[in-house]
Write a protein that binds this DNA or RNA. Sequence first.
RNA 1: GCCGGGAUGGGGUAGCGGUGCAUCCUUGGGGACUGUGGAUCCCCGGACCCGGGUUCAAAUCCCGGUCCCGGCCCCA
Length: 411
Amino acid sequence: MVERLRGFRDFYPEEQEIRSEIFRKMKDSCRQFGFKEIDGPSVENVELFANKSGMEIMNQMFSFKDKGGREVSLIPEFTPTLSRMVSARKDLVKPLKWFSVEKFWRYEEPQSGRTREFFQLNADILGSESYLADAEISSLAGHILKNLGIGNATKLKINSRILIDRLIQSYLPGKKEEVYYLLDRWNKLGEEEVGSYIEEKGIDKEIITSFSTGRILETMEDPELQKLNEIRDYVRSSEAIKVEIDLKIVRGIAYYTGFVMEASDLEEKFRSILGGGRYDNVVAQLGGESTPATGFAMGDAVLENILKAKGLWVQKKEGGIFLAPIDSAGRKYAIRVASTLRELGLGVDLNVMDRGISKQLDYASKMGYEYVVILGESEAKQESISLKNMTTGEQKEIELKNAKEILEKLR
RNA sequence: GCCGGGAUGGGGUAGCGGUGCAUCCUUGGGGACUGUGGAUCCCCGGACCCGGGUUCAAAUCCCGGUCCCGGCCCCA
């Protein structure tokens, strides 16, 4: 048998059902915030990524030559496509509030919360330089997490590249790269490693610690900090999620120009569940008109980790109806009953096996149907159905006309 | 790309050099059952990841690969 490719996943019905429900919730939240859904190609010219993303991402792409000899790649992220779409249309009314849920591909070593093919929600606001856009984006992120049932299990951490750069310039000049590296890994490295890195690079321990704890901000007066405070208060007042300013959130991506954010589970047991920020130069870098932009992306893999840990990765009990004919008269009649009920918009499963009533009930039970409709010669004659409630085991014979009303409530 | 730990029917497992056709549960299909038996009983299908090697003998030991789980790098 041919095996599934490394790092790829199959989604069987039990799981796909959960997955669709989660995506539906995410999309609902976006729409409630006035965002419009978009979609793009899964394959793009590699140049689109070469421009912006740097070497690292180039090494992780599923790239190939198409039959026309073009170097193309499965998309590893959304921002380049988004920028291309924005640049191509000069008539778009700003600000744009767009979201998408798409598949992405990156050739990496699979591990917890990481696969080679994954889904990602992207939500962006383009055309606004205001911190209000950052606040709205953050608020949406919080709302989505709340809607997914993990608003209490996660927190949003926000920061500003501009702010941290100013701090570095005032207190640790010339050490930008080292400070970024250190803050980004502060919790991961642990005290000892942090200590030895500080010593090695000649960074003042007192100062860097006041960065990591945020103590430095207590006495600071700065317009960028002021904005950040307002974003924090904005999200706070939506009461969806915990939010705090954290100077340790720098995000690795080179193109962030100011505001950055990240969300994770409270204990930080998992990777960050979403990340994003302001990227005012990307659209222009890709050849478009200068367009300020802010947004975030949320992958499905870490989300799955967290939902499972919180016991929220569960199938909704859906019920449904199974039609079980027991003789040839019943089989003919069943087709009529099925289409009658389907007209009402009900989901109706009809036996397609050569089976007796016992095995049909067995099947219906295993599939989780709430009702079984038993149909035979007698029902066919009387235009009735025998309706069996699979939870209680109760069964009664009712006229088909009345059955409609009863079953319609199930929809 | 690098580093750990794994891999036995669809799922969960027992066996860890030879004594039983590779164990047990579950799942799947069928039969008894001819309108209530989602029960019970019975039958059937289905596996030692792949390729080399060591050995009289390999699921079992060794090497390589593949895949899985986890970590590093990186996280767009």
